[in-house]
Design a binder for these strands. Structure first.
Lengths: 66, 66
DNA sequence: TCTATATGTAAAGTTTGTTTTACTTTTGAT
DNA sequence: ATCAAAAGTAAAACAAACTTTACATATAGA
């Protein structure tokens, strides 16, 4: 799975720390997500989509190997 | 978080085992998800939304306590 | 009623997400 | 060139997802 969180942050002019605080996780969690170190929970991805006011599928994308 | 996987299964006339097999998890995982025993990963929820051909937010819902 | 299929549940174990702390590197502004 | 903020990274510890096995309950049809 891939994501474009970094782009969404740029659009909204937020740092990783900003986003982390808004959705209630650590900054490292945001960083690791952006670097595709792991797959976040559905609660987390729903919160991010809600914050950015766009469909979850516009931020997170399945890949062939998923 | 809540979900209406059971309803979607009914619409598509699928058993828990059917769904489990289609998205590549165990039947107990589907059962536990339906009974809100845990929060699935974003890959799993994306696969379910894709299978049912509806937006993820039409299946999984944030609650106030999330 | 008997049987097959679907669902619910539980415990143990493995894997993976997430936090915390802490340090390094990059970037941009002055 | 310097400084501060932002981003990258890493290890240890803990929490949660997910699997496997196994059994119990429900439901519907023959």
């Amino acid at each position: 799975m891939k994501n474009n969180i970094k782009v969404q942050r740029a659009i909204h002019d937020m740092t990783q720390a900003d986003l982390a605080e808004k959705i209630g996780v650590s900054r490292q969690t945001i960083n690791a997500m952006e670097k595709n170190k792991y797959v976040p929970s559905t609660v987390l991805s729903l919160k991010i989509a809600k914050l950015f006011k766009i469909p979850l599928e516009d931020i997170f994308f399945l890949e062939d190997e998923d």
